[in-house]
């Protein structure tokens, strides 16, 4: 078995001539590298400080100019507030625009035996919100509720819409 202590104690013995030359070359190369690094400023504390300050300033600039653009492009959530309008009707106000619902989705659904456009079996990717074509800054509460309505009966062009929200119990 190899004895580690024997191996380490061999460091006190004189090296062969060729190995000594290699060590000299290695030492001179290291000195050259250190000298080059110092000249280029890589280890200069002033330069490190300058780099940190520059990075900090760059971060501030990016935050100042970039953050408003990111917030404007990506609304984090929609808060709906219901307020009465001048006619006493409930109107939904949102912090972000909601896409206009597309009533044409119901026309593509097969009518059931009672002639109703029941969209209950529609896949999730057929929701009207996904088919929005234009934005409305202040949709009414009706539009908000109709945006993803699936159970509809009657004529889509009817002048009056009743929305029932109910519990079967």
């Amino acid at each position: 078995m190899h004895n580690v202590s024997e191996s380490s104690s061999s460091g006190a013995q004189p090296l062969p001539e060729n190995e000594s030359e290699e060590l000299d070359n290695l030492a001179s190369t290291s000195q050259l590298s250190a000298s080059t690094a110092q000249k280029s400023g890589g280890t200069n504390p002033l330069n490190i400080g300058f780099a940190l300050v520059a990075t900090f300033a760059l971060g501030l600039a990016l935050g100042f100019w970039g953050r408003p653009k990111i917030i404007a492009d990506v609304p984090l959530q929609v808060v709906v507030t219901v307020v009465p309008n001048e006619n006493g009707q409930a109107v939904a106000q949102t912090t972000a625009p909601i896409t206009e619902s597309s009533d044409t989705a119901s026309e593509s659904r097969p009518a059931n035996s009672a002639g109703n456009n029941d969209q209950g079996a529609a896949p999730a990717n057929e929701t009207n919100l996904a088919q929005g074509t234009e934005t409305q800054p202040t949709p009414t509460i009706m539009e908000f509720l109709l945006a993803d309505a699936r159970h509809i009966q009657g004529d889509d062009a009817a002048p009056v819409t009743i929305i029932e929200f109910s519990d079967f119990k």
Partner: peptide, 8 residues
């Protein structure tokens, strides 16, 4: 055809 009825 006067009323459209929606359930939620």
């Amino acid at each position: 055809g006067k009323v459209r009825f929606v359930y939620k």
